[in-house]
């Protein structure tokens, strides 16, 4: 896999990740990431040369069906919930106007 990553690609990734990187940061990441990607891209070849169907491991210790009963547990009070909020009003988190709709 080619790890060519243009400055525009980095800018696109940063916008997906909601980080408004400065021009300098874009330059620096654009320079650093390809070297890192070259190194990590090796995994593809490793898997191919393993020569068999290797299952991906998403959990280091296999477990299944970890569930809880449907019983209400005390949560936080509104004051606790809002304690770290940059701004609040009417017992709600106050945020700047939201543009997009989901």
């Amino acid at each position: 896999m080619s790890s060519a990553l243009s400055r525009e690609d980095v800018a696109h990734l940063a916008s997906l990740a909601r980080i408004s990187l400065s021009e300098d940061e874009l330059d620096r990441l654009g320079a650093e990431l390809p070297a890192i990607l070259d190194h990590v891209a090796a995994v593809q070849g490793v898997v191919e040369s393993a020569g068999e169907d290797v299952a991906p491991m998403s959990h280091p210790v296999p477990v299944a069906n970890v569930m809880r009963e449907d019983v209400v547990r005390p949560g936080l009070t509104p004051d606790e919930a809002l304690s770290g909020a940059p701004a609040s009003e009417e017992q709600r988190f106050l945020v700047p106007k939201i543009l997009g709709e989901e």
């Binding site: 809880r68 449907d70 019983v71 209400v72 547990r73 949560g75 509104p78 919930a81």
Partner: peptide, 26 residues
């Protein structure tokens, strides 16, 4: 259900704002 998908907070409709919350669902 009495509680949320991934935490033990209540699910009653129309409760006062942010009274049915915990670290998980916040």
């Amino acid at each position: 259900t009495a509680t949320k998908m991934f935490c033990g907070c209540a699910t009653a409709f129309g409760a006062e704002p942010n009274t049915q919350v915990c670290p998980v669902c916040l």
